[in-house]
């Protein structure tokens, strides 16, 4: 076992330094100079915005509050609190008219469809603001969500750069505390706020603490099922999570392309993302 990599502990000062410099570097190379981020009032978007404010200065960060009329009041208050705490630019755009206009013709849509549509509505606004402000869309998905596929494809998973995508939820909380994100945001139960009273852990069926410990062993330390069971993880838990990771693989990949030419994009036409930057 890699004792140098204690599962859920990091030096958060250095982590913040690495991620801040990443944002600064990526934004500078893009010639955009600023970022725009959707603020939900949760710990992930608050932490992403805090890193960007450190990297670029608060004046170069735009936090968009994009509530639906059923979004919790607490979420809105916490997003506003994050804006005040960071001193970043902010705008609030109510997405209710767009969402309601669409679902007027789809009245039977369940809450998952509605939640996904809202996430994608927010994405379209963030990308419109990206063009309007010449600002890169800053991602907020953490590694736990990405591995479980607990996010909306082309919705909250969409971004130009993501400082949190290689940090588990537990790491994000630790980093948030280090950065001084207000405690009400860090310590509350995480929620995608897709419907009233939703919490991530109730929906996922597991706590983030347990998930992160398992995923760290499974993914980072490459424990196979036998080794995970020997390490004391519950078999049903291991199988359920492994299946979620497998089943959501498509969300972590670009669309599959039928290969007919001599050279297919991403298979044998491979260039770095930072090509020429």
């Amino acid at each position: 076992m890699n004792t140098g990599a204690l599962p859920l502990t990091l030096d958060y000062a250095v982590t913040a330094q690495v991620l801040t410099a990443f944002i600064e570097d990526e934004v500078r190379k893009s010639s955009f100079g600023r970022v725009v981020v959707g603020l939900s009032g949760g710990v992930d978007s608050s932490t992403s915005a805090a890193l960007a404010a450190k990297a670029l200065g608060p004046g170069n960060v735009w936090g968009l509050l994009l509530p639906y009329r059923e979004s919790s009041q607490e979420s809105r208050e916490h997003a506003a609190l994050a804006v005040r705490w960071l001193g970043i630019n902010s705008e609030t755009i109510d997405i209710s008219p767009m969402i309601d206009a669409y679902f007027a013709r789809e009245p039977e849509a369940d809450r998952v469809r509605r939640g996904n549509k809202m996430a994608r509505e927010r994405m379209t606004i963030l990308y419109d603001y990206s063009a309007k402000l010449r600002a890169l869309v800053l991602g907020t998905s953490n590694k736990t969500e990405l591995l479980l596929g607990y996010g909306t494809l082309y919705g909250d998973m969409a971004s130009a750069l993501n400082p949190l995508g290689d940090l588990y939820k537990t790491h994000v909380r630790g980093l948030a505390r280090h950065l001084g994100v207000p405690a009400v945001i860090v310590e509350k139960a995480p929620s995608a706020d897709l419907w009233v009273g939703q919490t991530d852990e109730a929906e996922l069926g597991f706590t983030y603490e347990d998930l992160d410990r398992l995923l760290f062993h499974m993914v980072d330390l490459r424990y196979d099922t036998a080794a995970l069971l020997a390490a004391g993880f519950d078999e049903r838990f291991v199988r359920a999570v492994a299946e979620r990771v497998r089943g959501s693989q498509y969300k972590r990949r670009p669309p599959v392309i039928a290969k007919v030419s001599r050279r297919t994009i991403d298979r044998d036409f491979r260039y770095p993302r930072d090509w020429g930057l």
Partner: peptide
């Protein structure tokens, strides 16, 4: 690769 608690990559 593998940021650690001591502030260095593994």
């Amino acid at each position: 690769r593998g940021l650690t608690a001591d502030g260095r990559f593994a």
